[in-house]
Design a binder for these strands. Structure first.
Lengths: 342, 342
DNA sequence: CCTTGCAATGACAACGCTATCATCGCACAA
DNA sequence: TTGTGCGATGATAGCGTTGTCATTGCAAGG
């Protein structure tokens, strides 16, 4: 005696291929083919089926489809934060790259926590994505192993300073730090200050900082003073920390910031305190955010190309959906934006 | 004659429940129960199975799981834009609300295009989400019908000025517009200007504008001049449009902006042009962004609670995963932030 | 008139998991 | 001793789609 109605109670009267097929007097296969635009179909049949689709309000079940075809059409995206505007900008690039394909991105946020990243990656992989785009190159061993063993494409974006699992798309933050120092030295500045992020969590800010500092030393110069803080950077913090630095080291000629948010805060401090920029104090940021460019004095900074990073990351995957033999690197570069503050 | 190896060629040596079960000498059911922490399991069995899981690096396939259990654990999120910082902030709230549940959000962006929204919603529904959180209350008829007929919970967020399909979470933009006008009138301003968004696309900005304007008229006053533009708002546009308004209507005492981005641009213009704020010209924004509060003069504005909107939207769903009889509304409110510019 | 070829469609197992029901021991009460 | 009850586990049919192979009908070629 078969158990006919096993789970029938739960079937929320969902419309399935079979319902459409029955109404259109064709087989399930034909309906499936039509829905996917795949295979040869007579025009008459197609229109008859589409009519049934509309009549029933049929929406194909992608979950079942993904299981059957062993292809989820999902792209996992892992970013550390949503409150830092640069990551939504990368997401825009990813969306742009994905537009036109029938792939969906699934976004997870780690809050800059590598253990959380591990959990998040495990959960993402459970959805059998066709690729994972993940910010940064620093992961726990377990995370790295999972990503590697998944066999799917893994695109690490934002930085290209570390050897990638599969592919890295972004810019060299070491090069950016070096370029910042060289640029400011070339413009004649000799007494440097640093304001920004001091923790160990944002590795990219740290790489820029260290490369910057090392380059100064190599030029026979050094960092006169610095005010650092942990946690999320913000305009408010930039303002407060700049005030602190100015009070403590009035001799500093130019302040380099961990990013534009902080630098904008610095500029606000100068505006409030009547400090002439750049005569009394020059300011230099990182990122090239819109807000910096719209300031009374356009912020001197380095432009990273967040949108492009996201877009190129997706393109790298679309161009080669299967993992290549050799890891690769795509350098999206950066440009110094002269501005008016340094 | 059975076709034994039908799709076997494609099986990328994936580890399945059966592999784990075989190694641990138990049935598939037992492995499944253990992975889901569901049902009674002897400690010895559990540890033996977990060992096998680790040994094989087993990752459950959520696609198969969702199909079998008819529950995808997915929450669809639809927002118009990622470049407007307010939406990432809502996403943060959504993430916060989802933390601890094993649900995943899937985000889609419409670019403020209702036809694109329709496509996006159709694609989302194909993933059989447990709920859809969608920004705004304005949709095409087809979108509304799809959402309604899906039977799942539909939480429309950001605004509560229209009757919801199922539930709305946000603030009344009409009330915000009225409050803006009343507040400024009460502070003695009589000659008003408006700078901002003029198109029909951002319905919420339009609602605020119209309520603001109507309230002025009701108070026997009016809008002396306005400079509007289409497309994405930005600090740069705010600056340029404020300059235009100042040049054209020097008598205006206070400018109301469609949002803080534009107002910050206005403040930058005043700083550059040496216009005293608020003595010569007062400024009033909308949103209560961090940037506004960190400005040399904290921007007077209305604080919407984006994070809270996202969080409450998720909570509404989690509290009642099935659609209630009656549509509901959750008002997350707003507060006037006095600031120093009006 | 009988192939041959191909466009069009159908039949059905498989995808990996879970819900349901069945079963098996074993402690404990009668 | 024989049930009884329950904790623990097993067997198996779906879940809704797609990939593979089979079949059908008909036009063109011989």
């Amino acid at each position: 005696m078969a158990r006919q109605r096993q789970r029938l109670s739960e079937r929320k009267s969902k419309v399935t291929v079979s319902d459409v097929a029955r109404l259109a007097q064709v087989s399930d296969s034909t309906v499936s083919r039509i829905m996917r635009n795949h295979g040869l179909i007579a025009d008459a049949t197609r229109s008859r089926v589409m009519e049934a689709v509309r009549a029933l309000g049929y929406v194909p079940n992608r979950i079942a489809g993904s299981l059957a075809s062993l292809d989820s059409q999902l792209v996992g995206v892992v970013i550390p934060s949503l409150s830092n505007i640069v990551f939504p900008e990368v997401l825009q690039g990813i969306n742009a790259g994905l537009a036109g394909t029938n792939r969906q991105s699934v976004i997870s946020v780690t809050d800059y926590d590598l253990d959380k990243e591990e959990v998040v990656v495990r959960n993402l992989l459970a959805w059998q994505p066709a690729a994972v785009l993940i910010a940064g190159s620093t992961h726990t061993d377990a995370t790295r192993k999972m990503l590697d063993q998944s066999g799917i494409r893994i695109i690490e974006f934002m930085e290209i300073d570390h050897p990638p699992i599969d592919m890295a798309v972004g810019l060299s933050h070491v090069a950016a730090g070096v370029a910042t120092a060289r640029h400011l030295v070339a413009r004649g500045y000799r007494r440097f200050g640093y304001v920004g992020y001091g923790g160990l969590i944002d590795i990219r800010a740290r790489m820029r900082y260290e490369a910057f500092r090392r380059t100064l030393v190599e030029a026979g110069l050094g960092l006169e003073d610095e005010v650092v803080s942990d946690g999320q950077t913000s305009v408010g913090k930039g303002k407060a920390q700049t005030a602190e630095l100015c009070a403590r080291s009035p001799g500093v000629e130019v302040v380099v910031y961990s990013n534009d948010d902080m630098a904008v805060g610095g500029l606000f401090h100068c505006l409030s305190a009547g400090i002439g920029v750049p005569e009394d104090l020059a300011l230099f940021g990182f990122n090239g955010l819109d807000i910096g460019r719209a300031m009374p004095k356009p912020l001197s900074t380095i432009r990273s190309n967040r949108f492009k990073i996201g877009q190129r990351a997706v393109e790298a995957f679309l161009e080669s959906p299967t993992r290549p033999e050799q890891p690769g690197i795509i350098d999206t570069g950066f440009e110094i934006f002269e501005g008016a503050t340094a």
